[in-house]
Each structure stands twice: as structure tokens, then as C-alpha cells.
Simulated scan of single mutants.
Amino acid sequence: MKYLSLFSGVEAATLAWEGLGWSAVAFCENEAFASAVLAERWPAVPNLGDINNIKEKDIKALGGLDLIVFGSPCQDLSIAGKRGGLNGLRSGLFQQAIKIIRWARKHCGLRFALWENVPGAFSSNEGQDFCQVLSQLSGSQQPMPEKWGGAGCCFGKTGLVEWATFDAQYFGVPQRRRRVFVFADFGNWEDRQPLFSDTESLRGDFEAGCEVKKEESSVTEPSADESSHHRLNVSVFDLTGFGQYGAGITASTVLARDYKGPTDLIVYHHLDNGIRSLLPVERERLQGMPDNYTRIPWRGEPAECCPDKPRIQAIGNSMAVPVMRWIGQQISTINLGSHCDCIK
């Protein structure tokens, strides 16, 4: 499998898929620190930079592609944002990805596309945005239901589109992180099972294996320098039983949104009975990344001096590696022998 990664961030997809024998043909990332992580960890893979500057000839030059993966910006879709939807400045970059997918189908024999985003995509613009996502990927206008379900499928002139919602806590990492995954198949999909056909049993299998300890709690008496955590409802996870992901502490993730910055993820440390922000390495473990994956030489300083702030932002903007690995394993079961440009 050869794939192009758009809005790459620090490239959770490649961390997940390199063990499957897949190879990234190119990345597309514009943010400075994330781009530096890509250059440090994957120096042989070119970075196309700003998605707005990619031309049709650039995609044609990549050669054969099996898949495009993209987690376009979620700020305008998230319930925590202003909800400008796909018309917003950031989330509107989805349209640039669709343009690239069309070029890749025309010139590179593209078979698949995988989109990742927040569950707010279901309700943004009263559900019209998700309808647009499905319509653009399937090649036909899709009907608008009264309410979008967390999983489903549709098809159109260009292919079959499936979607499902997965929570990272059931894939072996101690983090509650729900994401929508939309998978488009532009080839011969009629002779295969749906990619997400067995999602009902998925939660139970992973939940039993992880033994996540959860309870509702709140932080009600913070010190003066921790006032931003006052009366936040949190979900408490015991990290001690998670092997390589365990940090030996109790992590508290704010329920209202996913963590992005130092004030969004806090821990109660048993040794000093104090509240502190999670360290970057602990956040990497919550995403299923290798320890210190984002600790790189930065702005002329060695890796040991890499600041926490850009690492925390980059990790929070990324994807949960175990979820991406499972999806990759599902895609690997599909027979790639038959490609077609459209459904007759």
C-alpha cells in the first residue's frame, strides 16, 4: 500500500501503518514544528507543505497511490469552536483535499480515501456538512436524514462510503477520544464485506482487555495557579495498568473537549498530592506514540532542550495510533486486484 498523507501533523498514520509494510509517498504539513518532527523522523519522505499550493502536476508526479488519508482541521466543526463548518477558514480546507483526491484518481489510480474528524461533524450546520462530506466522496448527492447515526454507509457514482465512530479508550490507550472515520472505496467494492461491519463487538473486546478504571470526579479546590481547572468535570483513568502506556499516575481528561494545551489535561500525582499538567511523554503515551517521539532538535537547540508547548500542541492535534493501526488492518483485508474509475 502506498499512501499520501494530507494535514499530516506528526504523522500518527505512518506510526500505525509502517508495521503493515505500507509506505508514505509524501506528507502535506504546513505547521513549522510538526514539519520539523516529520523531517527528523521520516527524512526520506517529501513534505509538500501548504495544501493550498499543491498543483495537479504535483500529484501526478507522485505516481501510483492506493490511499489518501486526511484529518482536515476540525476547529470549525468542533462543538468547542465557532461552528463555521465546512465554510469556515480552517475546516474549509476539506475542499482542497477533495480536489487532490480527484487528481489522484485521474492520474495515480487512487483506490481509497480515509477522512478523520471530530463527532461535531455530524451536527455542524444542522448536519448539512456531513451530508456534503458523503456527497463529495461518493460522487452523488446524498439524502439528508433527520439525524446522522454514528455509523453507516452510502454509495454514488464514484464509490462506496462507510463511516464509523471510534473511541481511543477501547483500543488500548487510557484516553477518552471519540473520532469519526469516513472511508471511501473508488474501486470494486461489491465483492467485499463492509470495512466497519464488526464494530458492535469492538467496544466490548477492547474494554475487557484494557480494564479501564473510570469514575466521574471534579476539581473543586485548586490552588491560585491552577484556577483554570476549577469545577471542571473530568473522567479519571488509572494509568498504572497500561504497560508501555502507563505513567503510574491518575490522568484526568476534561469531558467538554479533547486536550490541546497545558490546561486541558491534568493529573493528580500520588507522591506530592498536587495537580499538574501531563508531561509531553505522558501525552505521547495517551496517543500510543513512542516515548519522546516529538522531542526533536528545535530552533538550533538539541532535542534535550525541545520546549513542551509545541510538543503538547502537536500531540493533541494528532490521532490515536492504535485506532489507525486497527483501521489499516481492516483495509489490508481488501483485495486490491480490481480498480475502476466509476460504478456503471
Rank of each mutant, 00 (worst) to 15 (best):
G316C: 04
I100F: 03
G21V: 12
E216Q: 14
L65A: 09
Q142N: 01
Q175T: 04
I101R: 13
R90C: 07
C340Q: 15
S235K: 12
M319E: 10
D205F: 13
T14H: 15
M324Q: 06
G63T: 05
S72D: 07
K344Q: 07
F155I: 06
S201G: 09
N188C: 09
E18F: 04
D185L: 09
G120H: 00
V321F: 01
L202Y: 10
W103Q: 02
V10S: 04
L20P: 06
R325I: 03
D258V: 06
Y268R: 14
S228E: 14
V267H: 15
A61S: 01
K344M: 08
L4W: 09
D50T: 08
E284R: 10
P310A: 12
V37K: 12
S135Y: 04
G274D: 08
S227F: 08
A184T: 06
I334C: 01
A61I: 08
R295I: 06
K213A: 13
H230A: 14
C154D: 02
V37I: 13
V281F: 10
I331F: 06
E301G: 11
T250E: 15
E190T: 15
E215C: 08
E40Y: 14
P73Y: 12
F122T: 02
F7V: 12
G49C: 05
D129G: 08
D50A: 13
E207A: 15
K57D: 15
D191I: 09
K55D: 07
G300L: 02
A151I: 01
E190C: 11
A208P: 03
G288S: 03
L110C: 02
P310M: 07
H339Y: 07
G64N: 10
S5R: 13
Y259I: 03
R283I: 04
L232K: 15
C28R: 09
G64D: 13
F155W: 10
E215K: 12
V161N: 02
K57R: 14
A151T: 08
F166L: 12
Q287L: 07
R192K: 09
E221K: 14
H269E: 14
I51D: 03
D238Y: 03
F33T: 13
G337M: 03
D238Q: 08
F155C: 14
F70V: 07
L67Y: 08
L62E: 02
C108Q: 01
